[in-house]
């Protein structure tokens, strides 16, 4: 494709992407950073884990985004008795009183499935996690003696961190399949909080999501366009060296002089970022550079997604696992503060 045509395509999609952001920001207030990150994940074709308390607007946010993407949207609630087959099919008695089997939420929309929302994924059993792991990685499933392809599906999962009863910790391999883990926090701004409480429009989440223009992005073209973005945005040798240093710092932070209060840095990390994780980091960073209308990666593109892409992939020693949220935030911040570009010679 000619360069001019690619430039036009990039600009056109950028306009649409930014419009989606604006539309969703109009519905969900105080979550601009999370909306930008979700937008990046959509164009990087990555799955997203949302983390936050109850009633902070995660579902409304995802429904708004799903409406903007277009395509089919499916949702399932994680419960302790949920089994993998509940995702694939469900049985019921038909009008004639005979049992019938129908496709479950994962297969129902077929290739039109664009967003699959798994609410409270940590309430589901590891068997369900295993199924999701495979579907997220391979984007197809064999059922009813045939292959179901889900090429345009992105999974948005939600994890409630408040309650621990009847929950199952998501294994690190499953976490690694998610491109990002995004925290959805209550906004700090007092005026925004007041608006969330007193503005009656926030009482009707469904009406809110209807305000987002439907099908802003052509969901079935996102895969191809994502490849265009990834091929278009370039990285310099200096930036590549910088990313390599960042990767090393996730594995051996102590060798960069990184220290956290009350933490034995030599015992903190069991496993740093994986190659897949670093690949996803660059994928997301390239989308950020494109959204910023640049053809080259800058460190700020890496910074914009570093914590959300890397933090949940690091495996801490069990003695620190209970403080994961706090320590991972501190560690990624320290890594970005410490690793320099250009690196010391």
């Amino acid at each position: 494709m000619a360069s001019a045509a690619i430039d036009t395509q990039l600009a056109d999609w950028r306009t649409r992407a930014l419009k989606l952001e604006n539309e969703v920001q109009g519905v969900i207030v105080g979550q601009d950073a999370a909306i930008r990150l979700i937008n990046i994940a959509i164009f990087a074709r990555g799955h997203v884990m949302l983390e936050g308390g109850v009633g902070v607007g995660k579902t409304t946010l995802l429904q708004s985004v799903a409406r903007g993407i277009g395509g089919a949207y499916e949702r399932i609630e994680g419960t302790v008795d949920l089994m993998p087959n509940d995702l694939v099919y469900h049985t019921f008695l038909g009008p004639e009183g005979r049992p019938q089997i129908d496709e479950g939420p994962l297969l129902r929309a077929g290739e039109k499935l664009s967003v699959f929302f798994f609410n409270e994924i940590n309430r589901a059993r590891p068997q369900v996690h295993a199924l999701m792991l495979r579907v997220m990685a391979e984007r197809h499933l064999h059922a009813f003696k045939k292959e179901y392809r889900l090429p345009h599906m992105v999974v948005f999962a939600d994890r409630n961190q408040v309650e621990k009863n009847e929950t199952f910790e998501i294994p690190s391999a499953a976490r690694d399949r998610f491109m990002m883990e995004i925290a959805i926090d209550i906004p700090d701004d007092r005026e925004l909080r007041k608006s969330l409480v007193f503005d009656t429009k926030f009482q009707h989440a469904e009406k809110l999501t209807q305000k987002v223009e439907s099908g802003l992005l052509a969901f079935d073209q996102l895969n191809d366009f994502s490849d265009v973005v990834q091929n278009h945005v370039q990285s310099s040798p200096a930036l590549e060296e910088y990313v390599m240093d960042l990767w090393s710092a996730t594995q051996k932070p102590e060798s960069f002089g990184i220290a956290l209060d009350g933490v034995d840095m030599h015992r903190l990390i069991q496993a740093g970022a994986s190659p897949r994780g670093m690949g996803m980091l660059l994928k997301a960073a390239r989308v950020h550079a494109w959204l910023m209308n640049r053809d080259y990666l800058y460190p700020e593109d890496i910074h914009a997604v570093f914590h959300e892409v890397i933090a949940h992939r690091m495996v801490f020693n069990s003695m620190y696992e209970s403080r994961r949220t706090l320590l991972s935030r501190q560690l990624t911040a320290k890594i970005l503060e410490t690793v320099a570009v250009p690196a010391k010679s």
Binding site: E300, T338, K344
Partner: peptide, 21 residues
């Protein structure tokens, strides 16, 4: 690039961490 490294390193030392724009 070496020149840049000298200047950036000085900025980083003064700031106490990596300084970006």
């Amino acid at each position: 690039q070496q020149a840049l490294q000298y200047v950036h390193q000085a900025f980083n030392q003064v700031y106490g961490r990596s300084l970006f724009r």
